[in-house]
Nucleic acid binder design. Structure first.
Length: 723
DNA sequence: TATCCATGCAATAAA
DNA sequence: TTATTGCATGGATAA
């Protein structure tokens, strides 16, 4: 079963950037991180927590199956929007991945503007449609997309239904994946049913709906295509409105489904113009393509959403609180080992195993107080409709009360490009208790409802304004930056497009490279050949500060043709060459500002958020804190509670850490990488003096900046060294 | 000139 | 007294 995930992520991104990812036969980045991530954190099953890997799944996670590191390098698929704006190949700029509330108007915003974007380089370069919301089935288990919680619209798709996927589902799945990127954004009203359903209440009344439909039929114009979003999010009504066929198709469908469809349903179905255009192109273009696309959309809505809605309605009728209940079941970060508050034992089961899902138990209360968490939102949430407008910028947690648990967190963040990636955001990870019998799984719609409880539309709009402002700044910066990178001019345009329209999202994912690591102080325009598996997609370079302002060549590693599953993807977020102060006893690592702001959750409070970082090398999960310090007019971002991690990995100055997010499951992963000399020389001893440190730093900066110096071969903590 | 960030160091907390 | 936290400074670099 495949899971169709209709992205509902960050609104402006989805609004502004096309989401179709990849050609139909290309692998697309399955970025259902938000939902999946939520599943992770909700994942309980006996107290284990946020280990995010598919349970008993053949989904290989890099560090669980080192063999994949040495397997054949999968063909890197094309990606629609992978250009790096800024970048030269040596400095792909991060696309903003503002995952938390955008309400922060602090210096981060200005800083964000400086964030160079990076994106995957689209090979064909044909489709300018930015591929920002590569939301798709973030299933941890392909076989059970039904369990994919989706903050947006991730609806399990059975290949046998809906789209008539044949065996293997190849093209069909691709198609679904394509559609899986359709955003359902409240601001992006492809299906604006307001013209049909004059008022919401009407939608609950079939008779009224009939009347409305009849009126609409007379009007011919396809109301769902009414454009009310304005700006660059204008829908395709210009073309579609002229198409009686489309109108007919839609109205026919509407009539056939008027018993079940509501305005509320349709209102949630929103697809961006770019998405539609891209999809239409992929369907061959022209009217027929549009028609086909429309049918597909409607079919999808009918086959999945409506069915799901009925199911959910039934469920929520008896238990309209269970989502909260489930959400608060267990703190995945609660450390069962009181002796090590920072270490989170990994779990074999990182994703909610679909096979174990059962209807949640009836609610006992609106929320569960988590002894470890200390506080829980106690919203009086309404019975959630199935699809609610999605908020692209989840709010941050309110200030938590004194934390009693071993792993307190004011905010818990999900990896970027997951619009629901903050645990502090009411998408599901709102707290946990330790009741192993309560299911953490939260149906997508209800999860979203939780989110909505905390966010009013005004807040959404406000957040959008801020994001748009950031985007503009970002674009401006990006523009300047790109001008300095001639060797990627052919990618710049796409990159700018992507960055401009959707700086919040990562557009790319890299494969996990759990086995071997290679540090490229300076990535040449053409990556050196003979890279170990998975390394082609991870060629991070260091900027002057040793951070990964230059992101690795972002590619969508998973390739179905190679037997790779997109769920295995890890998205490179940033890396940081450790300085003395990073590996000292302070237990904190200064993170590169640009990448932090781009790829890590946006921080509203200086206290930051807790981030569970799974050590790729050891599979241990460390509870770190991501925070910032005000610094002049800017911020300095830090990762705290890193002392044990550094010690465990034996990291020294000059080594570096790499932070990934699991595209599939939405967790963060960290890897400490010890730098080794390419020729097997002994590792250079850390500077014994401040002067030496400065010299080294300076040298390193020089290397990072300009010198196409020899690649530094590094070994993973597992002592795997690659030349 | 602006920005980033490494790190010094003062303030505070904990042992 | 030691450890931790958090701010401020200033060098390096980019714009």
């Amino acid at each position: 079963m495949k899971s169709l995930h209709v992205a509902a992520n960050g609104g402006d991104l989805a609004e502004d950037c096309g989401i179709l990812a990849g050609d139909a036969d290309d692998t697309v980045l399955m970025d259902g991180m938000d939902e999946v991530g939520r599943e992770i954190w909700l994942d309980d099953h006996g107290g284990d927590h946020n280990h995010v890997h598919g349970h008993e799944d053949d989904d290989l996670i890099v560090h669980h199956d080192p063999s994949i590191f040495y397997g054949d390098l999968p063909t890197l698929p094309d990606f629609p929007c992978m250009s790096s704006s800024s970048s030269s190949s040596t400095s792909p700029a991060p696309v903003n991945a503002i995952v938390s509330s955008a309400s922060s108007s602090s210096a981060a915003s200005s800083s964000t503007s400086s964030a160079a974007s990076w994106a995957i380089l689209r090979s064909d370069g044909e489709d300018p449609t930015p591929n920002q919301n590569q939301y798709a089935s973030g299933n941890c288990d392909d076989s059970s997309g039904a369990l994919q919680s989706t903050g947006s619209m991730e609806i399990p798709l059975d290949n046998s239904q809906g789209f008539g996927c044949g065996e293997g589902g190849g093209d069909c799945i691709d198609m679904m994946e394509t559609f899986g990127y359709m955003d359902l954004l409240d601001s992006n009203e492809f299906f604006d049913t307001s013209a049909i359903f004059s008022q919401d209440d009407d939608t609950q009344n079939p008779n009224l709906m009939d009347q409305t439909l009849e009126r609409q039929q007379d009007q011919v114009v396809v109301p769902m295509l009414e454009n009310n979003s304005g700006g660059d999010m204008q829908m395709m009504n210009s073309s579609l409105e002229q198409d009686d066929d489309l109108a007919t198709v839609f109205l026919e469908w509407l009539k056939n489904n008027k018993e079940t469809v509501s305005a509320e349903d349709l209102r949630k179905v929103k697809i961006k113009k770019a998405t539609i255009e891209s999809a239409a192109r992929r369907l061959g273009g022209g009217k027929e393509a549009m028609k086909q696309l429309l049918k597909l959309i409607l079919e999808w809505v009918q086959t999945n959403h409506l069915q799901r809605r009925r199911t959910t309605t039934t469920t929520t009728t008896t238990n309209n609180n269970f989502s909260y209940q489930q959400s608060f079941q267990q703190d995945p970060f609660q450390n069962p080992n009181p002796n090590n508050n920072n270490l989170i034992p990994p779990s074999d089961q990182t994703c909610f195993p679909p096979s174990t899902w059962v209807p949640p138990p009836p609610p006992q209360q609106a929320f569960v107080s988590d002894p470890g968490f200390g506080y829980m939102p106690a919203p009086n949430y309404p019975q959630p409709p199935e699809f609610l407008p999605l908020l692209e910028s989840p709010p941050s947690w309110p200030p938590p009360p004194p934390q009693s648990g071993p792993m307190p967190h004011q905010q818990f963040a999900m990896p970027p490009n997951s619009q629901y990636n903050q645990f502090g955001e009411p998408t599901g990870f709102t707290g946990y208790n330790m009741n192993p019998y309560q299911y953490p799984y939260v149906p997508a719609g209800q999860v979203r409802d939780q989110r909505l409880l905390r966010l009013c539309s005004s807040a959404t709009k406000e957040a959008r304004k801020k994001r748009m402002a950031r985007q503009r700044r970002f674009l401006s910066h990006h523009h300047r930056h790109n001008n300095n990178n001639n060797n990627q001019q052919n990618q710049t345009q796409i990159g700018e497009t992507c960055a401009a329209v959707a700086p919040q999202l990562n557009t790319v994912a890299t494969t996990a490279t759990g086995g071997t690591w290679m540090y490229w102080p300076n990535v040449p325009a053409v990556p050196p050949p003979q890279l170990p598996p998975a390394m082609e997609t991870q060629l991070p370079t260091m900027d002057r500060a040793g951070s990964a302002s230059t992101m690795p060549r972002q590619q969508v590693v998973p390739d179905r043709r190679q037997g790779w599953k997109p769920e295995k993807n890890l998205r490179f977020l940033l890396q940081k060459v450790l300085k003395q102060s990073d590996v000292g006893n302070l237990g904190r690592i200064v993170l590169p500002k640009k990448e932090a702001e781009t790829h890590l959750p946006e921080l509203e409070a200086r206290d930051g958020i807790s981030l569970a970082m799974e050590d790729i090398g050891t599979s241990r999960v460390w509870n770190m804190r991501y925070r910032f310090w005000p610094n002049n007019k800017s911020r300095m971002y830090l990762l705290e509670n890193t002392g044990d991690f550094v010690k465990t990995n034996g990291l020294q100055e000059g080594d570096f850490i790499v932070i990934y997010s699991d595209v599939k499951c939405g967790k963060y992963l960290i890897r400490g990488v010890k730098v080794r000399q390419p020729t097997g020389q002994k590792p250079e001893a850390p500077p014994s003096s401040a002067a030496a440190t400065k010299r080294q730093n300076k040298s390193q900066r020089n290397i990072n900046n300009n010198s196409p110096s020899a690649n530094v071969v590094v070994a993973s903590p597992t002592s795997q060294t690659v030349k």
